[in-house]
Design a protein around this nucleic acid. Structure first.
Length: 584
DNA sequence: GCCGTTTTCGGCCCGACTGTTTTCAGTCG
């Protein structure tokens, strides 16, 4: 078993234990153990083989034993027994909003219900109300939850959430009773997939703000409406939570609700070490729970809170407890790439293959938008469904690109197209031979049809990285968020090959790709692997995806220097020649 | 189940909302 499989099982054990009514601390220990494994930098097999698991904080004797069993034998007796003891339907019931482990256990133990279908029938028949703590409202809520789960998936692409959140944030900002407001949560941290949208507002009249919030246009359902908090369902089924606090509490609440949970736990611990207490209400000079303003360490912004804990400001994208505290303490937080650093995109399509726009249309729009260059990398012939170019059409395109560049030059415009291809990685190698590839300015190699065999896919990608004419690998994992799992690939092995060969990796900015994943960039920091943030544009609309790509790059700890297409055209041409120069 | 300048036992982050109760448990974030 690999690390991902081991952490998945530890997390599932935590859920199963929860359903059995185990101590919450024991449950948390499994969750902490899984988290600890996610952050290790060495291969898990090595740690197991050298019996060094115990050196990881959060892995004690019992977890050491279980992890070792999983890694060496590929299974875990304890997990199998636990799984056999808990009906699979109970896990599904846990997905229903308002149902947690305690209630699921009570329903199962007292009524013998172990599937969602049975639960639905029991609610409709009013059979849940006989249980202590259950009533008609609970039954109705469960039915609503089952319905909701059926209608909407509970996860949403970042871009969809941003699109529904932005108008509401703008409306809140304009409301006279609102002092400060922001999105928070995973949206503010720019996670690629988000569960719900969070807003934090400061106001002297919370009731007025909450009333305004629940009456926003398009709101489907109001789930909760209290004095300081409210939850609603937005169009598209996205849940939005609003929290209203006083302006003095605002920075603490914003930090708290921006998370991540793991980041906040470290913040709290730092506060405790300094004899302080950090909560969503403030930072207090007290070991006891308090909201006494006299004990408050005054902070007017998030920056002040970090400062009070002897830290530089940590930008929300980095708040995942993946090394940001260590870096902050050393003064080594990266100066992240910023929103206007990109000079162009190196992976794009035109109407020569499956793009919508002509070179002329693109040139006009891109000059207008202020870009310096744009690589034309249409599909190769293997992508016949995308009208991929064969060698003859590619040569014609090279002439067309040269022609339009000449016209740009004659008009005194500095913008240039670069020639190129998104060459398919086919079973037998690359879809174009080296002689053709050597004539192109930019070569992106991408896997579009993967085999079921992980080592075969991995080998094909490594071979592509080893080709001296391939500048970068496109959308390495092939994932489509919420729709398709990554191809069976050892991404790390391919990344290693890129590090060895000086091949760049794409950060594809299509909102359903965001591929390579930000976590892998964080894990491979400091190895000198260069990134190209590309919008993989199939139409002009897609150019705007570069903004989301920058967001993911920031989340990936990338700096301007890490990203190839922050270079100007002359620098870029030089960089494009480096790998080829090695083979002469 | 993990951890320790509070070190082998007794803690482990914590507060709002809901629905059920009439003082609180469960869920959620």
């Amino acid at each position: 078993m690999n690390r991902a499989q081991v952490t998945d099982i530890l997390l599932e054990i935590a859920v199963l234990l929860d359903l059995q009514g185990e101590s919450t601390f024991k449950i948390r220990a499994y969750q902490n153990g899984a988290r600890a494994l996610e952050t290790i930098s060495e291969p898990l097999e090595v740690l197991v083989a050298e019996k060094r698991l115990g050196t990881i904080k959060g892995i004690g004797e019992s977890l050491q034993q279980k992890i070792t069993e999983m890694v060496t034998t590929g299974k875990l007796e304890y997990y199998d027994q636990l799984k056999a003891a808990v009906p699979p339907g109970l896990l599904e019931m846990l997905q229903i909003p308002s149902l947690g482990p305690k209630k699921v256990k009570a329903i199962h133990d007292n009524l013998g219900i172990s599937t969602v279908a049975d639960l639905e029938a029991a609610c409709k028949a009013g059979r849940l109300s006989i249980l202590d703590g259950f009533g008609a409202r609970t039954e109705a809520k469960i039915l609503e939850g089952i319905d909701y789960r059926r209608k909407y998936a509970s996860k949403h692409l970042l871009v969809e959430a941003i699109l529904v959140a932005e108008p509401i944030l703008a409306a809140l900002k304009n409301h006279p009773a609102v002092q400060r407001c922001s999105t928070a949560g995973s949206l503010r941290r720019l996670k690629e997939v988000i569960g719900d949208v969070d807003f934090v507002v400061s106001s002297q009249s919370p009731a007025e703000v909450i009333e305004f919030f629940v009456n926003q246009p398009g709101i489907v359902t109001v789930l909760a409406k209290g004095d300081t908090k409210s939850s609603v369902i937005l169009p598209g089924g996205i849940q939005a939570d609003l929290r209203v606090v006083s302006d003095q509490e605002y920075p603490y609440a914003l930090a708290y609700f921006s998370g991540s949970k793991e980041h906040n736990i470290v913040m709290r611990h730092r506060a405790i070490q300094k004899g302080l207490r950090l909560s969503e209400y403030g930072l207090f000079r007290s070991a006891e729970e308090t909201r006494d303003p006299a004990l408050q360490v005054p902070c007017s912004s998030e920056e002040d809170i970090y400062k009070a804990l002897d830290l530089p400001f940590i930008t929300p994208e980095l708040r995942e407890d993946r090394g940001e505290f260590t870096a902050a303490e050393k003064g080594a937080l990266p100066e992240l790439i910023s929103w206007d650093d990109l000079k162009g995109s190196l992976h794009n399509h035109t109407d020569w293959s499956d793009g919508q726009d002509s070179l002329e249309t693109l040139a006009a729009a891109l000059v207008q938008k202020g870009y310096s260059y744009w690589a034309v990398t249409d599909h190769s012939k293997a992508a016949f469904q995308a009208h991929g170019l064969d060698e003859a059409r590619l040569k014609t395109q090279l002439a067309a690109v040269a022609d339009i560049n000449k016209r740009l030059e004659d008009s005194g415009i500095s913008f240039r197209f670069l020639t190129g291809a998104e060459v398919d990685i086919v079973k037998t190698g690359l879809d174009f031979n080296d002689e053709i590839l050597s004539q192109l300015d930019v070569v992106v190699a991408s896997l579009h049809v993967a085999s079921q065999d992980e080592s075969e896919n991995t080998q094909r990608l490594i071979a592509a990285a080893q080709n001296p004419y391939v500048h970068m690998l496109g959308h390495l994992s092939g994932r489509l968020l919420l729709r398709r799992e990554p191809f069976k690939i050892s991404q790390q092995a391919v990344i290693d090959a890129c590090a060895d060969t000086g091949t760049w990796l794409e950060l594809n900015a299509q909102p359903s790709r965001f591929d390579l994943d930000w976590r892998l960039w964080v894990q491979n920091r400091g190895r000198g692997i260069k990134c190209s943030i590309n919008c993989d544009a199939h139409s002009l609309v897609d150019v705007e995806y570069l903004r989301f790509g920058i967001g993911q790059a920031r989340k990936a700890w990338l700096t301007k220097a890490d990203v190839i297409n922050t270079s100007n055209l002359n620098e870029l041409r030089e960089l494009l020649g480096v790998k080829r120069a090695k083979v002469g």
